[in-house]
Computed example of a mutant assay.
Amino acid sequence: MASIFGHVALGVTLGKLLLPDPRYLRYWLLAAACAFLPDIDVVGFRFQVPYASLWGHRGLTHSLFAAAMVASASVALVRLFHRQAGPPPGRLWVLVFLATASHGVLDAMTTGGLGVAFFSPFRLERYFFGFNPIEASPTGIRQFVGSTVWRVLQSEAIWVALPCALLLTVQRLFSRQTAVAR
């Protein structure tokens, strides 16, 4: 899996790109949390849930179906509790869906694990992309030390943080240019 740092960086970036107004900062943070949320399935290791099962790591919680459910629930909760202050529901749904789904995308670009069950619960096959530049992060905090942490963070700096920074820079330049043109 990619580390929490890579997932959160991509979630915040998606939030800033899709809801650029700073008053939506809380939704950037929601996107960051949703980008990491699929790894809740690692608790299954504690209960001997088989890795390759529906409920195993990179199974149902990493699927596009789960991303759609998280997005739908998030929009419903925001509409219930923040009627006037929330962003447009459709845009929020897209943000939360993309942030949650981005987790599986990053994991499918890593060098380890069993792949991602993108189409779970309908199909249990797991997938990797043909391009795997992100060093797989250990699943336990105790293993996330020493040279391992540096290899993971270096690969994420190149393949996650740098593209995020470039996208945010382009957005900033475009918004400045648009403001000057007005």
Score class of each variant (00 low, 15 high):
S120Y: 00
R79H: 14
P89Y: 05
V70E: 00
W55H: 12
A73M: 12
S137H: 03
S74T: 11
L92M: 04
E135K: 14
M109P: 07
A71H: 01
P133D: 00
L54F: 08
A71W: 03
L64C: 06
F122K: 02
A99W: 11
L95R: 03
A85T: 12
A66R: 00
S120M: 03
A52I: 14
M109K: 11
F131R: 03
V70Q: 01
G112K: 13
S53C: 07
H82Q: 14
A73V: 06
V70A: 01
G86Y: 05
Q84Y: 10
S74H: 03
S72T: 15
P121M: 08
L92P: 04
T110H: 07
E125G: 04
T61H: 07
V75Y: 03
A108W: 06
V94H: 10
A76E: 12
L80T: 09
L64Q: 07
A52S: 10
E135Q: 14
M69P: 05
Y51A: 15
N132R: 13
T100V: 08
S102W: 13
P88E: 09
G113Y: 09
Y127R: 04
T110M: 11
T61C: 13
Y127T: 01
S102A: 15
F128A: 04
M69Q: 15
A99F: 08
F131G: 00
L60N: 07
L54V: 13
H82C: 13
G112D: 14
L106I: 12
D107F: 11
L80V: 02
V105W: 14
R123K: 15
L80F: 14
T100L: 03
G59F: 06
G86D: 01
L124I: 05
P88S: 14
M69N: 06
Y127H: 15
V116W: 01
F81I: 06
M69L: 10
A136K: 03
G56W: 12
V75F: 10
A71Q: 00
F129H: 02
I134E: 07
G130E: 03
T111W: 11
P89C: 06
